[in-house]
Amino acid sequence: MPEGKIVKALSGFYYVLTADGKITQCRGRGVFRKNKITPLVGDSVVFQAENDQEGYIMDVLPRKNELVRPPIANIDQAILVFSAMEPEFSTVLLDRFLVLIESKGVSPLICISKMDLLDEDAKLLGFADYYRSIGYEVLLTSTKEPEQLKEILPYLKEKSSVIAGQSGVGKSSLLNVLRPELELKTDNISSHLGRGKHTTRHVELMEINNGFVADTPGFSSLEFLEMEAEDVKDCFPEFVEKSHDCKFRGCTHLKEPKCAVKAAVEKEEIASYRYKHYVSFVEEIKDRKPRY
């Protein structure tokens, strides 16, 4: 039976792309519902084609990872789009995204959009420099400068990437520059609500530069539902680097004495806002009501 990749899921149908470029509209077999298996965009699947256009998914091949928001599987890279303004750049929201992405073993690429709205913001540039210093790739972009936006293309080659971020930060605008023929719908920020309207209604993989890119529904809140408190420290790369010098193995960097991470925060080698976010994330997880 043929194999392929689910590139779109909509209204109970799964659109499977095969190596020869053909797309077959498939339904999932009843056994998936019985076994509580939900095929996701990005899944590699085995399917049975009834004809050239329709078929049934027979099996979902093992996943290397999966995300809940957005619902997608087998992602290599997450392009986290955050605007310089409208909505205002938020380090706490960026760090939430980074922790969740790191916990899934997905490589993040930080893309700060709408730089044209800033005359010069040393504070924002300082944030960008700090994230670069701890190992993240950071691109400063503007849809007013299409050639600048195209700097992202090499990062997409032969990878499956997901574009994520708040509504209104410019995710669809970014894709429209990379592939103008898509003509994806965009909306301005709501002046009343201070945030963008949701312009993307479903998850769909699109081929760009020999890779796949997913445009996803915008969202403005993330919860650490699949994480334990002790896992969070491993999602801060600068903590991991310093932790080898902590007195206690498995140091949580909270109340332990002779903690190298806390010492680095005091010396301003680690950004204090990152440490504050870490503490608040751990407390949030600990305060989470147990699920039964």
Results as ranks from 00 to 15, higher is better:
Thr24Asp: 04
Asp59Leu: 11
Tyr56Gly: 00
Ser44Lys: 14
Ile6Met: 04
Ile112His: 09
Arg69Lys: 13
Arg63Ala: 06
Lys5Leu: 14
Val31Ala: 13
Asp52Ser: 13
Leu117Pro: 04
Ala19Trp: 03
Ala78Gly: 09
Gln25Cys: 14
Val7Cys: 04
Asn35Lys: 15
Val46Leu: 13
Asp95Tyr: 07
Ala9Met: 02
Met85Asp: 13
Ser11Pro: 00
Phe47Ile: 05
Gly42Phe: 02
Pro87Arg: 10
Met85Gly: 01
Arg69Cys: 00
Ile112Met: 14
Ala73His: 04
Ile6Lys: 02
Ala9Asp: 05
Glu86Phe: 12
Arg33Pro: 00
Arg96Glu: 00
Val92Lys: 13
Arg69Ile: 03
Phe32Lys: 02
Ala122His: 13
Tyr56Thr: 15
Asp119Phe: 12
Arg27Asn: 09
Lys36Val: 00
Tyr14Ala: 03
Val92Asn: 15
Ser11Lys: 14
Pro108Tyr: 08
Val68His: 05
Val45Gln: 04
Ile72His: 02
Asp52Phe: 08
Ile37Gln: 10
Asn74Ile: 08
Gln25Tyr: 00
Asp121Leu: 07
Gln48Glu: 15
Ser11Arg: 14
Glu88Cys: 09
Leu109Gly: 07
Lys5Ala: 01
Ala84Val: 08
Glu50Asp: 13
Asn65Ala: 09
Met1Thr: 12
Thr18Trp: 00
Val81Asp: 01
Ile101Arg: 00
Gln77Cys: 09
Asp52Met: 07
Gln25Arg: 15
Ile37Glu: 11
Val31Lys: 15
Pro108Arg: 06
Pro62His: 08
Gly4Asp: 08
Leu17Met: 13
Leu10Cys: 09
Leu100Cys: 05
Gln25Asn: 10
